[in-house]
Amino acid sequence: MKLIKRLVVMVCLLCCIFTFTACEKDDKIKVGILQSATHSALDSARLGFIEALKNAGYDESKITLDVQNPEGNPSNMQLMAKTLVRKSDIVLGVATDAAVALKAAANTEGVNIPILFTAVTDAVDASLVESNEHPGGKVTGTSDINPVSDQIALAKQLKNDLKTIGILYTISETNSKVQADMAIAEIKKEGLEYIERTVTGVTDIQQTVKKIIADGAEIIYIPTDNNLAKNIAIVGDIANDSKVPLICGEENMVKAGGFITFGVNYTKLGEMVGDMAVKILEGTEPKDIPVGTLSKDQCNLVINTDTLALLNIQVPDEIMEKATKVKTE
């Protein structure tokens, strides 16, 4: 009996809470964003998206924005995804797990809204779309697939007599693995050797970097890996001491202490998916919008001059001329 009484009290309390929460009945378009964790690349993408919408006229007067971030907690991710798909007219998932969660939530809640994604490396593998050219459903977006071949070519430019490239990434990140596999294929094509090493988290970064250098890596390639991006300073400290340049997947990693990248600009990636959102809001079906990627002209060559000073190596003039120079933040 007491149990039932308590349940009734709970439900009444809930009803009270909700009568006090004002319901906004307005005609603004509701845009939901689910970002899986705080992280400079993901943040840039999100801001690019919002900027693109604003530039097309979709600002606070026309849309309400709801940004949710579960900071990696799986059950919160689910709850936030469900909440967003129910109340939004269109949603954006920043990073693969957020996009997958939104798609699953829409399926579960029986909601049929357009779902956009960005910062997803392989949307087909993640079952988000049928194919990159013909997404086929209510989901489309932009992929941060890296110009890996250009990054490996960069390695050769930095060191003429390069023999061995190290590849470092976090074992639990699928996106990283995809890029690492592409890098390996590219390295083999160039007739070079590679050393592939993985870390499981933060604690084994130091030893793994030391080992990969001890095993003979002359340059280390790090794809757009969330864990390593967060901890690039740790990698950088050891690599710089051994004068081993770090080629990073994207420029935020370079700004945080890496050396160089020819990478995807996440802000531009976000803007691209923002433009897609505008198209969809104005009538295009997601299935007719192919998954977008940045062309080489849209990629940035970025070099960190502080790291350059620590490494004390010679960089070919053509690279120094073309590159955007940044300092460690």
């Binding site: 709970m10 809930l14 929460t21 705080t38 971030n69 919160n76 709850l79 936030m80």
Partner: peptide, 19 residues
């Protein structure tokens, strides 16, 4: 009840980092 409380917080628009 645990998830009820979390969901209420999310729906009340509580900023994620405050969860």
């Amino acid at each position: 009840l645990y998830y009820l409380i979390i969901d209420i917080a999310i729906n009340l628009g509580l900023d994620s980092y405050l969860l």
